[in-house]
């Protein structure tokens, strides 16, 4: 019993991601440019969506992602997708970004350092960073997986709305229901 509890605690601790990002590293994007992950001068927040070209769960959310960008980009929220998979390929991601009409670049997180530092293990896992690199929200885009429903809880949209209003997110952490990221 004690062993099981210790193991559960250890597992939970190991899975707990840090609340802050300090990296100033710039990642190569599908637009050919290098991008910093932290918000730029004009941005209040950066939304980082962890990407896998193979993940159908993320693909199911493409329309909602585009709508989120349309709703929040003018409110100084910057969106990025980050592909940390070990077999990520810039040409493939570029084709995917174009085909899926992403209005933001997909960045290659070679070696998966950013994913590890943010505790990303699933595609569709999303993090909202403030200008100091603090993680203000992490988890799913919403409560749906593949079969999208009108009454889904829009975790990311709610968090951004709350943050832009100067409040803490009503839900600061949720569960991402996406696919396992191939990080090794």
């Amino acid at each position: 019993m004690r062993l099981a509890l210790a193991f559960a605690l250890l597992t939970a601790c190991a899975a707990s991601p840090p609340a802050r990002v300090t990296t100033a590293e710039r990642l190569e994007g599908t637009d050919g440019a290098l991008h910093a992950v932290l918000p730029l001068d004009r941005d209040a927040y950066t939304v980082v969506i962890f990407f896998s070209a193979d993940c159908h769960v993320l693909a199911a959310h493409d329309d909602r992602i585009r709508k989120l960008v349309a709703d929040f980009a003018a409110r100084r929220v910057r969106f990025l997708a980050v592909d940390p998979e070990v077999d990520a390929n810039l040409a493939r991601d570029r084709a995917q970004a174009e085909q899926r009409r992403y209005p933001f670049p997909v960045l290659l997180d070679r070696g998966g350092a950013l994913a590890r530092s943010l505790g990303a293990t699933y595609a569709s896992y999303t993090v909202v960073l403030d200008r100091e690199g603090n993680v203000r929200y992490r988890g799913g885009i919403d409560s749906d997986r593949v079969h999208l429903r009108d009454d889904a809880t829009p975790y990311l949209a709610d968090a951004l709305t709350d943050l832009l209003a100067g409040n803490e997110p009503r839900v600061a952490e949720s569960k991402a229901l996406g696919c396992a990221l191939r990080l090794r």
Binding site: A53, D54, C55, H56, A59, C179, A180
Partner: peptide, 8 residues
């Protein structure tokens, strides 16, 4: 089988 994707 575990979930991964459409391609998974």
């Amino acid at each position: 089988f575990p979930e991964r994707a459409w391609a998974q």
